[in-house]
């Protein structure tokens, strides 16, 4: 599910691009999967269709999707390697955000490390990897 938050300080079209990237990484949209039409997504998200068009153009420029004449937008195949690289970049970005929060809360690197270790250990011992809703 792509979501936009009009109260977030991030341009709506950027939120849509990030949303699709995450969905593609999670495998919700596989290679050559057809994206919703601009019209349908605009109505669903209650977003100006021009903004959706801008997000799709941006994704095409980044090579994430391609257009087929008269048929709409599709997820670009991309290699496993590229996908892993994207995943790594995304995880790194998220860790960066966490790090900034930890620093602002005056957490030491050791404390952060042990928190991460706890979580990693919890996952292996726990009932199952937690499921994202």
């Amino acid at each position: 599910m792509i979501k936009v938050d009009e109260t977030a300080p991030v341009p709506i079209y950027v939120q849509i691009v990030q949303g699709f990237k995450r969905e593609i990484l999670r495998g919700v949209f596989g290679p050559d999967h057809r994206l919703p039409s601009i019209r349908d997504l605009a109505v669903e998200l209650k977003v100006n269709p021009n903004t959706i068009a801008k997000a799709y153009q941006e994704m095409e420029t980044q090579g994430i999707i391609y257009f087929k004449r008269g048929q709409g937008a599709f997820v670009a195949p991309g290699t496993e390697e590229e996908r892993m690289k994207e995943a790594r970049t995304e995880i790194k970005r998220l860790f960066g955000e966490i790090l900034a929060i930890a620093r602002s809360l005056n957490l030491t690197d050791e404390q952060l490390q042990s928190l991460l270790n706890d979580l990693l250990a919890g996952r292996t011992h726990g009932p199952k990897a937690r499921k994202e809703a």
Partner: peptide, 14 residues
């Protein structure tokens, strides 16, 4: 408000 915004989006797309 929601109904009006939805109607406006439809006018834009259609």
């Amino acid at each position: 408000r929601e109904q009006i915004v939805t109607t406006l989006i439809h006018s834009l797309t259609d």
